[in-house]
Amino acid sequence: MDIKNLTFSYDKKKPFIELNQLTIKDSKITTIIGPNGSGKSTLLGLIAGHLKAHSGEVLLDDVNIHQISAKERAKKIAVVHQQNEAPEHYTVRQLVKIGRYPYRNKFGQNEEVDEQIIDEAIEAASLTAEEERFVYQLSGGQRQRAWLALAFAQQSDYLLLDEPTTYLDLHHQLDLLARVEEKNKTQNQTIVMVLHDLNQALQYSDEIIVMDGGRIIAQGEPFEVMTPEFIHKVFKLNVLFFEDPNGVKHLINIK
């Protein structure tokens, strides 16, 4: 995905986002991080096509995403949001089925294939046992997985996640991220996430993009970009890295 000369603002006076050039690597996990108000979610919204840029373009396979229909776009880009709501009569399966919406046409689509894809999506989210239960009856962690399954069912090249772990406890946060990582490794799906937690961003990404004030101030391999000096400058934190027995580096905040 290529992004060129993007500008966007919420109030038409001050630009909120200004980007010259950004390339998102296919089949990799890219995470966007930055302080509050840096424009992370806005950028994700622009990439997803929810928001329209005032100038510049977002190109997917050299096609401007706004020049294709919403359904076509939905076949290429799926999004999982922070918070979601579903009417109480929806079962897990009915919810995931909505992920097949972009493939539906007036005269019935291939029912069997659809059902299989829905099965796989539910399986990938480990909700097979719950598929006939109502979404509102699930626990928070399970519910977010249902929305993840919906996105899986879209079978898109790109999967975008906007702070999907905010309302989950730590166990479920890591669980969700592990599943997303699995998707990437097994099916080469390109992942773009906005995360708050710096450690999660570091540990689950192939590429990291740091935003501040609506601009991208750094991009690259996570541990190369995120040095303690850089983190101090951008996030106003004093940190150091700790390497655990498995060789994984963790960020620790020092008061």
């Binding site: 880009i77 949001h81 009417p87």
Partner: peptide, 17 residues
């Protein structure tokens, strides 16, 4: 009407007008 009951962001993401 059923679709409209879901989060707006979600149904937009699947291409629903």
């Amino acid at each position: 009407c059923n679709m409209l009951g879901l989060s707006e962001k979600t149904i937009r993401s699947v291409g629903f007008p």
